[in-house]
């Protein structure tokens, strides 16, 4: 009985210390923020339905001068290196743009890229954003473009594919052999900061943080150079899952082995207990 009481006291003080230095301290260091907003509510929603055929014409006339659509065999007009020196950054491939990015976000982005990406602290009249505004298009035309982009491919994109299209222009994933399409020196002069390799980001930032962070980087880190890219909730989950498959590749093994190790020690403890009882019966 006395031992149980002592154990309770030890566990109590240990638990209080743990609570203080882990959950409590972290809640103080990382103040609560609004949850991720996958509705992109501050962007005015589209009120018209797009026409795919019309969109195709518009995309061919306006987009493919800079963007590739590899799924249709349309290669980029320039190499990554050339594109980076021409625009400051490599323009994204559009094969899945209409699927992985939110439709309202895409529309808002076409009208005003700097506001949609939340990069007004980095770009303006003095330093223009690489992607021009298409606000001269009508609401209907924008809806057409978005509708067409969403219809280019019907097959589901892989987790790695989402990462390559949405993140891989700036970020490397060296533990999976992926090198950023834009060389880091260009990114630095374009955005004012280098884009880090994200191989271990799943362990350093954790999935929960990434969920809010990727959705809206500026809300989480003041003055950050990373744009809001407007991934849908499902595509963002694919990105995080890809990051986990690279940076925490042994998670499944860890979680299943854990039970076996605990089970092994439980059996050990039981046998040790029975042995102890037997031995101490002689002396007590």
């Amino acid at each position: 009985m006395r031992e149980i009481k002592i154990l309770a006291i030890v566990l109590f003080f240990t638990a209080v210390t743990y609570w203080g230095v882990e959950p409590y301290a972290h809640s103080q260091m990382h103040p609560h923020v609004a949850p991720a907003d996958f509705g992109f509510k501050e962007i005015a929603p589209l009120h018209v339905n797009g026409n795919v055929d019309n969109g195709k014409v518009l995309v061919e006339a306006n987009c493919i001068a800079c963007h590739s659509i590899k799924s249709l065999g349309l290669e980029a007009p320039m190499s990554f290196e050339e594109a980076a020196s021409a625009y400051g950054i490599v323009p994204p491939d559009l094969s899945h743009a209409g699927v992985i990015y939110d439709k309202n976000y895409l529309a808002g982005f076409l009208k005003d890229p700097v506001s949609a990406t939340q990069l007004s602290h980095k770009f303006g009249d003095a330093k223009p954003y690489a992607m021009p505004s298409f606000s001269f298009l009508s609401e209907q035309e924008i809806a057409d473009v978005v509708a067409y982009l969403g219809n280019i491919v019907s097959t589901k994109i892989s987790d790695k594919g989402v990462f390559e299209e949405a993140c891989g222009r700036c970020h490397s994933m060296k533990y999976d052999g992926l090198k950023a399409q834009t060389p880091n020196t260009f990114i630095k002069s374009y955005l004012g900061a280098e884009a880090p390799d994200v191989s271990m980001m799943i362990r350093s930032k954790k999935a929960e943080y990434l969920h809010t962070f990727i959705n809206e980087p500026l809300k989480m880190v003041e003055g950050i150079a990373m744009p809001r890219v407007g991934l849908t909730e499902a595509s963002q989950a694919q990105v995080v899952s890809y990051m986990e498959s690279v940076g925490d590749r042994k998670k499944a093994e860890r979680e299943s082995l854990g039970l076996k190790l605990i089970g092994f020690m439980a059996i050990f403890t039981l046998i040790a207990y029975l042995w102890k009882v037997q031995i101490w019966r002689e002396v007590e």
């Binding site: 020690m265 439980a266 050990f268 403890t269 040790a272 207990y273 042995w275 102890k276 031995i279 101490w280």
Partner: peptide
């Protein structure tokens, strides 16, 4: 014998 139990 008691320590093994505690260690376990």
């Amino acid at each position: 014998s008691k320590d093994f139990f505690v260690v376990g």
